[in-house]
Amino acid sequence: MKMKTIIITGAASGIGKAVAELFYSEGWQLGLLDLNPTPLQDTVKDWDKSRYCIVAANVTDPDQVETALQQIMQSIRLPDVLFNCAGVLEVGDFEAITLDRHHRILDINNKGVLNCCYFAFPYLKQNPGSRVINMSSASSLYGIPGFASYSASKFWVKGFTEALNLEWARYGIQVMDIEPPFVNTPMLANKQAQIIRRLGVKLVAEDIAVQVFQAAQGERLHNAVSREYKVLRAARKCLPDRAAHKLVKWMSGY
């Protein structure tokens, strides 16, 4: 059986790091991409050097992404999975967050995914049965106050995932996403919001890594994580917009 390969963006910490560790333990070969790859050196210190490649790149920069993937392809086999994990979060009233920060959220969470998919496509196309797994969020279920740009960015990821899944089926490429509620990672550290307190932070990065590994073997387009979120997701389909509005308003304290 040939060794499978995965390319992971945002691999240096949080969910990206946990996914890298799990897939390596399962015998996969890895292309690891991060804006600051220095922490990855500690992660891979005891790894077989023939099974990974680390590249520094800013996913918002198309030229850097193209070059990074070219470098990775010189070291590992054609990818079986591209996992778009790089992302950022800001919490606060829309007008209290700087415009530059809003732009950064959209640049990383959306343009980063677009850039990586665009430049990975020629390699994925050569490997029928390959997949793209994008990090979406429970925040894509309904626009969350205090998370306006972040929530909107995850709606974009969901729509982009659905469209590409249909388009790229003709090449044998499956596109899917992961939708977790709040996860205890550095991205969420020190973030304060009523909805975080009410829903709680019950997941860790390793929980999401397991979901990503299952998605890499599965067929589901949207992979909802946690029982509570699955219940909310099911309820959203049944609730009229006015009721959903009231529920989200109560949960978020607005």
Rank of each mutant, 00 (worst) to 15 (best):
V19D: 04
G200F: 08
A138Q: 04
M73A: 08
V91K: 05
F155Y: 15
V113M: 05
R242C: 08
S50R: 14
V113W: 02
G253F: 03
E21Q: 09
F83C: 13
Q74S: 15
E219P: 00
D46I: 04
Q64M: 12
K246L: 13
P128F: 09
K237N: 14
L166H: 11
P79C: 06
D48L: 09
P145D: 11
A138P: 01
I76F: 03
L82E: 06
E66K: 15
Y150I: 09
H222V: 11
N184P: 01
A216W: 12
N223L: 03
P122H: 11
Y150F: 09
G159E: 02
G218N: 13
D63Y: 07
G27Y: 05
V59H: 06
G31F: 00
M187R: 07
I7N: 11
T38W: 00
E66G: 11
G146I: 05
A86Q: 10
H222P: 06
V204Y: 00
K125A: 14
V59E: 09
I178F: 10
T38S: 09
T60S: 05
N115W: 03
K17M: 12
G159H: 05
Q194V: 14
A68T: 13
H245W: 11
A152D: 04
K2V: 08
A169Y: 01
A224W: 08
V183N: 06
G10R: 01
P37N: 13
A205F: 04
S130V: 03
Q41K: 12
L69Y: 15
L247I: 11
D93H: 14
I54E: 07
A163R: 10
Y123E: 09
L99D: 09
P62I: 08
N58H: 06
P181C: 07
A56I: 04
Q192I: 11
N134I: 06
F83H: 14
Q211V: 11
N58P: 02
A209P: 06
A148L: 01
N223P: 08
R170V: 13
Y229N: 14
A193L: 03
I76R: 08
L32F: 08
L221P: 11
Y171T: 01
P186R: 15
L82D: 07
Q71W: 00
N115K: 10
H245C: 07
W250T: 02
S75P: 02
E66F: 07
L40W: 06
V212M: 06
K202H: 13
V19P: 03
K246Y: 13
N84A: 14
G143A: 15
A215S: 12
I54D: 10
W250I: 04
L232W: 08
S139N: 13
E179L: 07
Y150P: 04
I72Q: 06
I196Y: 02
P186S: 15
A11P: 06
I178A: 12
L247R: 09
H103D: 10
V212C: 05
K111C: 02
N127Q: 03
Y118I: 10
V183P: 06
Y24I: 06
I208F: 01
G92L: 01
A243Y: 14
V55W: 04
C238S: 13
L30Y: 07
V88N: 03
L69N: 06
A215I: 00
M73P: 00
L33I: 15
S151N: 10
S139H: 12
T60I: 08
F213G: 02
